[in-house]
Design a protein around this nucleic acid. Sequence first.
RNA 1: GGUCCUGUGGCCGAGUGGCUAGGCAAAGCUCUGCAAAAGCUUCUACAGCAGUUCGAAUCUGCUCGGGACCUCCA
Length: 500
Amino acid sequence: MSLKIYNTLTRTKSEFKPITPNHVGMYVCGPTVYSDVHLGNCRTFISFDIIYRYLKYLGYKVRYVRNITDAGHLEGDRDEGDDKFSKIARLQQVEPMEIVQKYTVGFRNVMQLLNNLPPSIEPTATGHIAEQIEMTKQIMANGYAYEVNNTIYFDVEKYNKEQPYGILTNRKLEDLLEGTRELGGQDEKRGRLDFALWIRAKPEHLMQWPSPWGMGFPGWHIECSAMSEKYLGKNFDIHGGGMDLAATHHTNEIAQSRACYHTSPANYWVHTNMLTVNGTRMSKSLGNGFLPEELFTGNHPLLEKAYSPMVVRFFMLQTHYRSTLDFSNEALQASEKGLKRLWEAYELLENFTPDSYRDGNEQLAGDTELDAKVLALIATFDESMNDDFNTAKVLANMFELVPIINSIKEGLIKTTALSSATFILLQQKFKAYLEDVFGLTRISTGDDGTLDGVMQLLIEIRKESKAKKDYATSDKIRKQLNALGIELKDEKDGGMSWNK
RNA sequence: GGUCCUGUGGCCGAGUGGCUAGGCAAAGCUCUGCAAAAGCUUCUACAGCAGUUCGAAUCUGCUCGGGACCUCCA
């Protein structure tokens, strides 16, 4: 079964066929680093991290490019005024690049905590001014852009005469024109949908570069077009980003690339849905954003407790990337418990190989029905992921396997029930999916080895007191450890286990 | 106004024209000194109305509700 991806451009799921066999080029719009990323932003990057990981799991060699926008992003919808970096830099009386550095470091740190793999290339807008100027020149030379007072605008209406501008989101130009604001008196654009490729800078602007049209800075949309072309070519496989970028940013990217190179940039457009709070989109402008930091520390008025980055990741994987996901305490708590259950079963599986399977002994299934069921469930992992990356379904089927794993460990199912081949496949697939594809890691923290020793000692003392039926002591140990966040469990065979 | 998405059991959320998604919560039982964990069992829903069909939560239409985009935002 082959991989199918939902393509925004065609509004259908279709089989993924890379341009070059075994290779995938993927571009994802990254953050604008003038403030902290919130959880909604993180959702998109987690979704694409899963896609990146799964493509690698399938054996593709992937070049994953995700940009850092550190210039040229305007405040408001007018093509003038300062860019966001300059504005904040001015407010805080620092260099714009200090703002960029601060939030780039912060972003990478959060990505790492969430266990997102770093992209293959993480280009910055400021590092590619020359490429953006070149592309702007070419678009002008091709007749799709014009200059007014040293600012270059893309001529949307002219472009639309030859090819459909609103192709990505299925909009007609007339409708778009109707829904757009009136041109203000000071606007110099010819068409109200026209957008800036290059913007003249006033002398006091902090970030500006020389160009054939004088000192200025690039428009927002041109950076992704220029950088994707540089690192992935004029036509590449996958272009991704949040759904909010489709109508404007990605629409403009397509227009720019087509106007410049006469080819569509990407074959597959993948858009992730929004994270919501009480049904409304989490966004910077609404101020309802949760910062990762707040979540990890629990330091937020709406949060009852702190949640580990892995819980957040798991929470997001339980929903399909094209569905909205509503953020709440209850949902997060459910995820925390669910992940714990799944992960504990996984660790049991990892650390437990029945004696009879050792030394490469082949063993036939003692319970062929159960064996077949397990194999069928395992097979759904790849099938579900191949169906437009349905992580939610994979997890549901993993949970179906959890009681089987636990029962084998508890001795409720004989170790001879499954064939050795099935058991080993189960181990392999759990590991491959949980760790490699889903990028989950052990939840507990602060394990430096000392704790292990202390715990062994406490367990020993507790075992002794239990043997003497001194339950007051044994309960005290368990209760007080619990208060410290350590859970102690008595096991059937008289052993004890613990976890944080 | 335009372009779309969406409405699933107490909560979160997959999904397909006919077969129990799953997680969390809740209840009962087993195990256990007690707990916890684990296992078993229960809770069987798809906004409303009409239609297509042998059969629809899944397709069509209408009604009502929620949301996104069209303006900076993943």
